[in-house]
Design a protein around this nucleic acid. Structure first.
Lengths: 202, 202
DNA sequence: TCCATTGGATAGTAAGAGTAGCCAATATTG
DNA sequence: CAATATTGGCTACTCTTACTATCCAATGGA
């Protein structure tokens, strides 16, 4: 298909698609002449993925590009691809206090997740704990355990259901499932909060 | 204290504090003369809160302002304040499919959360489901139930622990707990995923 | 008294995410 | 086959967000 049809089928303006091409978010079409290139369904899918990642998951284009590279990289196992995508997503580390880092270390060790001690996600966690402590709302280990148990139960249920035959498809499935379900999880937590507090106080 | 000390104690440049004053993110100090105003610890706390909300929770300043207004608004019960803060946070609704809306409605009803049927969070949820379906990774009701159960268990544990005596403090506690623990929850989910998938495949 | 600081206002900057316009080279269609 | 419409490729412009930087006249402390 030609550019016009790609724009049509993806619902995006031609100028935006050109911009995504320039930014390396969309692979070039098969060029059939100096002024024409041929796009296919993979391009339509890719555009849908980019929009879902920006609009639903709220990722900046830079992060989208990193995620897509990981998905496309055949040299990674699907598991490594996920790790790589995760790592590339994390923003530059801000300094965290030793106390918060220790609280995180202890948490990970209690849940058998010690292997993630140096993961960028551990830093994100430590920074959140630091911020809460700085605002005089320290987080107890008990509450952290509740969160960790909730996270564990989610992971137990969704990770095993990933199809492991087609690596690229699996990587996409993981990336999409991880990133697009994040806002869903947060929305459910807020809904649960509303309902629990209503039940307790109305 | 004077502006210079406020800048010093908050670690922010004077220019940034002035900008926050102009933007309505920080209440003006008690003005003691045409060229002097007096700031106190509440101002320092407020600045810390603003930075935590932007840097840790990733909120745009516009959302921070909405959250702060809700916290400050004495006419709201603390529960209403949370709802209001939540509502103001949600971005303009993009259209969602009838199918996704129905899936969300059924989910909420299964979990006794029907009162949140028209909550903006329900729209967020529907949009995420639509995006996943559009990418050919539809989400099963079973998986949604796992997410909902995880969200419920978190809410059950943290909502009752809110101190209900001081409304403003309670509102701040809820807002801060809700928003700053979001990245923490997502980080734990990713860590759990890494560990579960490593356990399954290494 | 005098010089650094402040509040208040205006203007400038940098990154992020598009948008828009131009042009020469094709396609398509009459 | 000629006229018209579309491309690809390029450059430049725009809009928003979140600051930064200046300026200035009025103070306040040494």
């Amino acid at each position: 298909m030609l550019m016009a049809e790609l724009a049509d089928r993806s619902g995006l303006p031609v100028a935006t698609i050109k911009f995504y091409l320039r930014s390396g978010l969309l692979p070039a079409g098969r060029s059939t002449s100096a002024t024409r290139a041929d796009y296919d369904d993979a391009h339509v899918r890719r555009l849908r993925l980019v929009r879902a990642l920006t609009e639903v998951a709220g990722l900046p284009l830079e992060a989208v590009r990193a995620v897509l590279e990981s998905v496309d990289d055949d040299s990674l196992t699907w598991h490594a691809a996920v790790g790589s995508a995760h790592t590339r997503l994390s923003s530059a580390a801000a300094p965290t206090s030793a106390g918060a880092r220790e609280q995180v270390r202890a948490l990970l060790s209690r849940h058998g997740w010690a292997r993630s001690d140096s993961s960028p996600h551990a830093d994100v966690l430590a920074r959140a704990l630091d911020a809460l402590t700085g605002l005089e709302h320290p987080v107890s280990d008990d509450l952290l355990d509740v969160y960790a148990a909730a996270a564990a139960s989610i992971a137990e249920h969704e990770v095993p259901s990933v199809d492991t035959d087609d690596r690229v498809a699996a990587a996409e499935q993981v990336v999409v499932g991880t990133l697009l379900l994040e806002p869903a999880l947060l929305a459910m937590r807020r809904i649960a909060q509303e309902n629990v507090s209503a039940r307790l106080r109305d």
